[in-house]
Design a protein around this nucleic acid. Structure first.
Lengths: 285, 285
DNA sequence: AATAAGATGTAATTAAATTACACAATAACT
DNA sequence: AGTTATTGTGTAATTTAATTACATCTTATT
């Protein structure tokens, strides 16, 4: 977590003097990173060790380390204030905010994602006889995208955004098959059923969903992306972008596991598209 | 300018020892910010003052100040040196790299996107009688996602990932209809045809594609996302994420233009999904 | 080959941060 | 209310880190 957020959050647990330090830092963070501990102590009207203790309380190694963290917090312009779209934002404002909040969400996802689980998921995928991607609603397009990616690997891959097809597919699954269920909330009943059915039929079920959700309970492997819910707009936005990036990661892990020769194959797939495209040389503006 | 970029740029003007320092820093920037000048000097196999001189050459006040700048450069995840996945990267490495390069791509897109054009696109969309989203291959899933979003707005919206359907739909379009064509390269022949047909039938054609591409020529309005091509993996990755964010932006612009009452409607759409989901209260792990 | 300019390292100095300890304030308990 | 823990805060000493000054070496130029 961002140091600045941390300061704001834990402002209650501070002592009187520590609070003075917090106030000064929040008031002029940019100045703080260029000050010595002595200068900051003077500004906050406390002693130097107090500042040091303050830093330690925020899980940093000391004052210099704290400055480093603070510098990073300031740099990544993350929404330590308000990055939510407001009623009267103009195009410039909402464009910037959406880009930034998406980036912040990706950053959060990066920090929370469990690497060993990714590795195991890649393991499972590379050994799969058949891969199925299932999603409903907003997650359907993520499933489509995954299909498009894995299709290039020349492995049997299917994708359904229709409950009936998903169900049929799940019932027909067998040992060695991998079913990837995508759902941000993990509370879509139909998809939970599908996951259960697939497992009953010995398929390995990977869930791209929230930990601690009904869907997660039905999965062999859960890839969770702790992206802050985007409640403002009543639409899934950042969460879905994070899911796509996760798909990219799995696909990349897949190709790496398969080795160099396999990647030459990918190039062939790409080259095969050439016939349907205007050549770069053909077109001149 | 970013310190890391600066190092890369001025690598020629460095002396032998300074270069050693630069190499070590570029190789492990994250380690550097947590090292003392002595540790870094040892890693680079040079003396401490050399490191100090190196820092000064980069217009920083000294080593600690340099570390601050470096920390900031790292925080904003810009693609300073090599964020490309390598043959022998482990899960941790490629996961981090993909997150970071995606974020960098979004950052680039944010800086290059043309706000007035976005505004005009929102204008056009809010006044549309019917909205169609067309994409092929990897862009098809972006089109699906767009449909999912705009569908909630209770406007007539269709999405086709099939050339024949797209063609039929384009031929049947009329004044007041908006066709959104999505293609990263803008060189997919079929989609260019579709755009041309739609225009001939008086539809407004918005292209989410590269400037200076055949597709762009056929469009009324071009929304370009100058995302650095992700050539490594022979798969569209970051470009597609940027397209999705652009869809989010258009959707957000749409809802803002429609006002508060309209957003209450969105909430209704979201609430309508409740029946198909496990309630949060129902489920306890 | 000689010399000057620049680069690099060693050792001394200075500055900064941390630790240890003592005192003060507050809270808890008799 | 008075006494005793407990926690908080500051002073001074210590340690650690960074910088400066100077000497030595390297390299390019005449």
């Amino acid at each position: 977590m961002n140091v600045l957020e941390k300061i704001v959050n834990s402002v209650n647990s501070f002592s009187k003097s520590e609070r003075k330090v917090a106030d000064v830092i929040l008031a002029n963070p940019q100045t703080t990173i260029h000050s010595s501990i002595a200068a900051l102590a003077k500004m906050a009207d406390v002693s130097e060790p107090t500042v040091n203790r303050f830093c330690r309380r925020l899980d940093t190694k000391g004052f210099p380390d704290f400055k480093l963290h603070l510098a990073q917090s300031l740099a990544n312009g993350t929404p330590y204030v308000n990055r939510h779209v407001e009623e009267d934002d103009g195009p410039e404002a909402y464009t910037a905010k959406i880009f930034e909040s998406t980036m912040a969400a990706l950053d959060a996802a990066r920090q929370n994602v469990d690497i060993p689980t990714i590795n195991r998921a890649v393991d499972v995928l590379t050994q799969a006889k058949k891969i199925s991607f299932f999603g409903l609603g907003a997650s359907a397009s993520v499933a489509h995208d995954a299909q498009n990616k894995f299709f290039r690997f020349n492995v049997p891959v299917v994708c359904f955004d229709d409950i009936v097809m998903q169900r049929m597919s799940a019932i027909n699954s067998a040992e060695g098959d991998v079913v990837v269920c995508i759902s941000h909330t993990g509370r879509t009943k139909n998809l939970c059923d599908i996951a259960a059915i697939a497992r009953e039929n010995d398929a390995t079920v990977i869930g791209i969903t929230a930990y601690d959700s009904p869907l997660a309970k039905e999965c062999t492997l859960v890839l969770s992306l702790d992206v802050p819910e985007d409640t403002d707009m009543y639409m899934p936005m950042a969460s879905r972008v994070a899911q796509l990036v996760l798909i990219d990661i799995l696909a990349t892990g897949f190709t790496l596991r398969r080795g160099t020769k396999f990647r030459e194959n990918l190039k062939k797939v790409k080259d095969s598209l050439r016939g349907s495209r205007f050549d770069k040389k053909d077109f001149h503006s």
